[in-house]
């Protein structure tokens, strides 16, 4: 019985690790709050059950100082939670647009264009050594339901959809982004370990929503290039085999 984060419970991306840390931080705060309030509620009920019918209740319309305390303390905690998160969010969704410290534009390699459609993922990579163009090129490499990315460092994909709204979700990497019709959305993440990570759709896209089963294959940069060469050779196969002499 393993009812916790998928796999061994670890996130396989830097961002995912941070998300997990935040999750556990909130979990601790929330658990303490839950135990505290539930204990208070339980104690109040237990005491309330014990008061006899002729006994006078605590006739009180409230307490100003208590109200102040339980306004200020939670708001401090909540503000802390809110502000503490901002940086991770910025890193995930905004810092890719920012410039480096020396003023040069940030460079995140765009490895592929991921197109969601009812009900599969079609992926287009540029040929080895070329950048991804927004329009298809003759030497592009295509795969379906299998997204290959290199490990080590941030990579970016361009997410789009052919038809309705979908969402790109890789649970093990804690990455999720909607694919919105008419938009191309850059998503960047890193995979810390080579391996196969399941990839699925997280936004209702029709009756076959659950069918969009795919795999994100993280490989070392060398393996990635080798795979692209192999895929390219396969894709441009003309089927001609020299007859055996």
């Amino acid at each position: 019985m393993h009812w916790w984060f998928p796999g061994d419970g670890n996130a396989y991306s830097t961002l995912g690790g941070k998300i997990d840390d935040l999750f556990y931080l909130i979990l601790v705060i929330v658990s303490v709050t839950f135990v505290g309030t539930s204990a208070a509620l339980g104690y109040a009920l237990w005491r309330g059950a014990a008061i006899k019918a002729d006994e006078k209740v605590w006739f009180s319309h409230g307490s100003h100082s208590l109200e102040v305390i339980w306004t200020i303390v939670p708001s401090a905690v909540l503000l802390f939670i809110a502000l503490y998160q901002l940086d991770v969010w910025a890193e995930y969704r905004m810092k890719g647009f920012a410039k480096e410290k020396d003023g040069s534009p940030k460079i995140i390699t765009v490895v592929a264009e991921v197109t969601a459609r009812q009900f599969e993922w079609r992926i287009r990579y540029p040929a080895n050594g070329k950048p991804l163009k927004p329009t298809p090129q003759p030497d592009d490499i295509y795969s379906v339901n299998e997204l290959h990315v290199p490990t080590g460092g941030l990579v970016s994909i361009t997410l789009r959809t052919d038809d309705v709204q979908h969402a790109f979700f890789v649970p093990m990497l804690r990455v999720k982004q909607d694919a919105v019709p008419g938009k191309m959305i850059p998503v960047w993440f890193d995979a810390t370990m080579p391996g196969n990570y399941e990839m699925l759709c997280a936004e209702l896209c029709g009756w076959g929503h659950y069918k969009m089963k795919a795999m994100l294959v993280a490989q070392s940069a060398d393996d990635f290039e080798a795979w692209k060469d192999k895929a390219s050779a396969e894709q441009f196969d003309d089927g001609y085999r020299k007859p055996a002499e």
Binding site: G96, F97, P105, L132, T158
Partner: peptide
Amino acid sequence: HPAEVVAKNEEKPAN
């Protein structure tokens, strides 16, 4: 094709 239009605008972060 909308993708082309949008792509032009969104190319920046990618590169």
